[in-house]
Amino acid sequence: MKCKVQQKFSSYPDQIKPRMENLRDLIYEVAKNTEGVGKLEETLKWGEPAYLTSQTKSGTTIRIDWKPKNPDQIGMYVSCNTTLVSTFRTMFGDDLKFEGNRAIYFPVDKPLPKKQVMICIQMALRYHLDKGT
């Protein structure tokens, strides 16, 4: 983990840090097991941990964060220029909470819906490959 990203994770409250690390681990797990994705680059974008498919340009950037103004949730964000959140909403509208066309929010007091989250991550990491662009 890069120093600035590590500092960001260290800044999360004690009860939030494991949730953020769990979501980060899922992103890496999905990337490792998804054809065409390649190695991820971990960095900060807009002060948030971000995961880019830099070597293959297979997908769109995924950002994750927790914000004090919404302490009861963590977020996963994708580019608002994609159709991903619209697709996620169609697939998982009863299981996940969305905002606009860029965010999925997960309550911090419940386990991550791992299967649905992994599908969303995979679709984001393969977005350009699957769109044929």
Results as ranks from 00 to 15, higher is better:
Glu29Ala: 06
Asn81Gly: 15
Leu52Thr: 11
Val37Thr: 00
Ile27Leu: 02
Cys3His: 05
Thr53Ala: 02
Gly75Trp: 09
Met118Tyr: 01
Leu44Trp: 02
Asp109Ala: 05
Thr34Cys: 08
Lys97Cys: 14
Lys57Tyr: 13
Gly59Asn: 08
Ser10Glu: 15
Pro71Asp: 12
Thr34Val: 06
Pro18Ser: 01
Tyr12His: 00
Cys80Thr: 14
Asp130Ser: 05
Gln15Tyr: 08
Lys17Gln: 15
Phe98His: 09
Asn70Ala: 14
Glu41Asp: 12
Asn22Pro: 14
Glu48Leu: 11
Phe88Ser: 03
Met76Thr: 07
Lys2His: 04
Ala103Lys: 00
Asp65Glu: 11
Tyr12Val: 05
Lys17Met: 15
Trp66Pro: 03
Leu112Ser: 04
Arg89Trp: 00
Arg63Val: 08
Lys8Asp: 10
Met118Ala: 03
Arg89Glu: 01
Ile16Thr: 07
Gln15Lys: 10
Val30Cys: 01
Asp109Gly: 11
Lys17Phe: 15
Lys45Tyr: 06
Ile64Gln: 01
Met76Gln: 07
Arg102Leu: 10
Leu129Glu: 03
Glu41Thr: 09
Glu42Met: 02
Asp14Cys: 09
Leu26Arg: 08
Pro18Lys: 08
Pro113Met: 05
Pro18Val: 09
Arg126Gly: 02
Tyr28Asp: 09
Met91Arg: 11
Ala103Cys: 04
